[in-house]
Design a protein around this nucleic acid. Structure first.
Lengths: 275, 275
DNA sequence: TAGTGGTCTAGACCACTCC
DNA sequence: GAGTGGTCTAGACCACTAA
């Protein structure tokens, strides 16, 4: 036996050289997927794994750490390592995954309106300011393949040092919509995802029936001092967006195909070599 | 200077002994939160950090790995480590977090019905069986504080080896509802979360207006051979459930309070010492 | 070429569990 | 006491980046 997914030396043109710890991750992951280790089973001890794979303990532990982060195994001090029975509650949904597919198609971000207004009681409460205080109100629409897909409203505390122009610039691309600009200090954000029914205006803008369901993503940005900076809401058409994830070991077709490393989203999870 | 969050020796009754790598995580995390390192900034090199904190490189790297998993920093080979500007797309939502609060209150799982039926075309397609084949059809209702909260329908491929009784047993507790039983081989599941409008029946059961919005969680369980085992749908009342998460460094009140270690859900994320 | 992060090793001590 | 996982060390080599 011995190690299964060895780097294959440095053959061929590309020295693909899967690091040993990744090979171990894949090997154990496949054993979990194929039932060699079943949920609740005790896995071989670290010492045994070290011997089997011919690596040092730290390397072996790096692999186990990844599997732990993926929710596939769990370890108990003094007892052993176990194949972890997963539950539905382990599901973890990534927003990027849901919106990411937009980037594949033709996407346009329209600025519907931008103005400074007096804060309503609701907004004043959200931004921790006084009713009537100046806020920048921005409405955007993300159009995907000629279909309106996302309607976004954003209320930003008026800050003379941050001119309206800058906010508008951020509005002109999906990049600006979803990514904070470099060097800007937005140390914290709170995000809430829920289901909601479209109001009359939003329904018209998204070309959906009134009261149609939508995914609602609220976001509240805070500065380093815990003061609210901006509050807003994305409305995602329910017929265009869903968040998908999977539980359990990754089903892999080819072992050697590790140019794309796992980007799973189980519970504990971790992204191996993203970018 | 030197290390900031030292274990405080082994004073007092409890030798709290925060491992050095966790102290480093907290220290750097706070620097990110307070703006010492701003988004895009290059952080000190690993060698410099090692000297500052007085630890070996592997220990320092363990801390950096955690921060990387949390999405707070990113490293580029040959260039350095950088404070990572986060985007909304980094948001990651945990189902357990959303449903978890149920366990705080009084919860009851009602079995509305359980029977074997012939698969409809829709279900046959989902379960990869022939139309009319036997499936077990189960309907459950989760009641929280006397209010219906979750309506669940489940279609399970009929398996003589897995009697109906066992399925019913799993239905009598929220544990059974959300957690797979020990030793059972359900190596893989696909989960989809979307917004939907309640149909007439579901609306009545959940005591909501017809067409009211709801979070819909579809789950498809597969066995080791990629064969569908069960397909079902949870409908969560939109007025009772929302998925929340946060981006950016954790705001911590007390440094020493590490009995509860971070259980954040940023993007890459990882659960440190859960359970 | 020097500095950076990515990986690996062969030890070590500890706390915990079980016998 | 033996076995387990959790942590740590002081080196090492590599690939990448930049001057």
């Amino acid at each position: 036996m011995g190690a299964t997914c060895k780097p294959a030396g440095r053959s061929a043109l590309r020295p693909v050289t899967v690091p040993p710890y990744l090979g171990i991750v894949n090997t154990i992951s496949q054993r979990l997927a194929s039932g060699v280790y079943e949920a609740g089973d005790r896995l071989p001890s670290e010492a045994e794994f070290c011997e089997e794979f011919g690596v040092s303990r730290m390397t072996l532990r790096k692999a186990l750490t990844i599997l732990t982060d993926q929710g596939l195994i769990s370890a108990k001090k003094g007892k052993g390592t176990f194949a972890r029975p997963f539950d539905l509650g382990d599901s973890v949904f990534s927003l990027k995954q849901a919106v990411g597919r937009l980037f594949d198609g033709r996407v346009e971000v329209q600025l519907l309106s931008a103005s400074t207004i007096g804060a309503s009681r609701w907004i004043a409460n959200k931004l921790d300011i006084d009713q009537g205080d100046k806020v920048v109100y921005i409405r955007q629409l993300v159009v995907h393949e000629d279909s309106p897909a996302i309607y976004h409203r954003d209320y930003v505390r008026y800050d003379p040092r941050r001119p309206l122009v800058e906010l508008l610039l951020r509005s002109t691309s999906l990049y600006g919509l979803l990514q904070t600009s470099q060097g800007e200090s937005l140390p914290h954000a709170q995000i809430t995802l829920r289901a909601c029914a479209l109001g009359a205006t939003a329904a018209r803008i998204l070309q959906r029936p009134s009261r149609a369901p939508a995914l609602c993503i609220e976001h509240l940005f805070l500065d380093a001092d815990h003061h609210p900076l901006a509050w807003g809401r994305f409305l995602l058409r329910s017929d265009m967006f869903a968040l998908r994830t999977s539980l359990g070991p990754v089903q892999k077709d080819s072992i050697g195909d590790s140019t794309r490393l796992q980007t799973r989203t189980t519970r504990p999870l971790r992204c191996i070599s993203e970018v």
